[in-house]
Design a protein around this nucleic acid. Structure first.
Lengths: 186, 186
DNA sequence: CTCCAAATTAAACAATGTTCAATTGATGGT
DNA sequence: ACCATCAATTGAACATTGTTTAATTTGGAG
């Protein structure tokens, strides 16, 4: 599949140098053939991003299923999330920085895929405080997970001062501590 | 100046369609001239991003100077940040999504400019709890501001489900509440 | 073996960043 | 007033990109 070849290219050469012809060459075809499979170059990227999200979501689910405590599970989720982002920085960034230019908005399947992780967080929050109304749970889950994402992306793109004292993981721990305490006691 | 023309172009047509020739045409010159002023196209973008950060930082400082309470000041900072990002989405995104390809790393001045806002947050945190050691203060400031940034960027790029119940501002309020409480009482 | 449809290619197009020799323009000295 | 020098500006060229399409190849069905 062309998608896998594209993913491998992004991983080895960075998403800046991902090109239609390179993808075609990588799978032994010509650029024209690609355009009979995908409408756009963006179409290819979108499919590739979908695969990236699925891969990451599966990894998170796999590595957190065994945990019993919901708080521990949330912390494990975040850990796997930053690990995946660190291991595949370009593929991960493409998921969030790509936007289909002009025309069709991001397909619904993409939105669903992203929402999966927010819902996983919400599920665990509900387990922590079952008495909270769903809207509060969803709200807190969104705030927490977006915050984690923010730390992740700033650190990954080198836009965060990560002095010896505080690492990405510690920053995320602080955020989780804060939001969970607030969620429990208020 | 070419930088202002570029900024205007990004604002009106989006950063996807920012092009060297368009910038040159906008200021009545030819593309060749641009390349005697800037080494790269990325060089131009970097200069433009510097101006964007300065503009935003000035706005934040201006709108928060009058506030007396450090907590109120932090909330006001976040509010202005969100407002600026919402008002100039493409210019704001460029600041965080652009990376100079190959060769020279992002110049030091850029890093300094970004750190300004983290330091503003840290200053206010120190005022809230002067007994904390500087590292803790810096750590908390980084976690909080990165989290706010995460909410901001996900919301702005449409990758966040913003149901009627919770808006960007409310999400950020939740994050600030959580981190500040944790910072005060622990 | 033939023939048709599908797959694949090759070539072309416009637009992009980038370079550089040639041209213009102005400035200062005699 | 003229000219010489130097910087500013241009125009044309290049390689590379996404994208389209007519032509060619390929692979089975009859």
């Amino acid at each position: 599949m062309a998608i896998s070849a594209a993913a491998k290219l992004v991983e080895t050469e960075g998403f800046q140098s991902l090109t239609a012809r390179k993808v075609a060459a990588k799978i032994g075809y010509t650029v024209g053939t690609l355009y009979h499979v995908f409408r756009n170059f963006d179409d290819l990227v979108i499919h590739m991003n979908a695969q990236t999200i699925d891969e990451m979501a599966a990894l998170i689910q796999q590595k957190t299923r065994k945990k019993r405590n919901p708080e521990v599970r949330i912390r494990a989720m975040a850990e796997v999330y930053v690990q995946y982002a660190t291991d595949h920085p370009d593929r991960w960034r493409l998921v969030f920085e790509h936007q289909a230019p002009s025309g069709l908005p991001t397909p619904a399947q993409m939105k669903e895929r992203r929402d999966v992780m927010f819902e996983m967080v919400a599920d665990n929050l509900r387990e922590i405080s079952p008495e909270r109304i769903p809207q509060e749970v969803a709200h807190t889950a969104t705030a927490l997970w977006s915050g984690i994402h923010g730390i992740c992306i700033l650190a990954l793109t080198g836009k965060l001062y990560l002095g010896g004292a505080f690492s990405m993981v510690k920053l995320i721990d602080t955020l989780i501590d804060s939001v969970l305490n607030e969620f429990r006691h208020r």
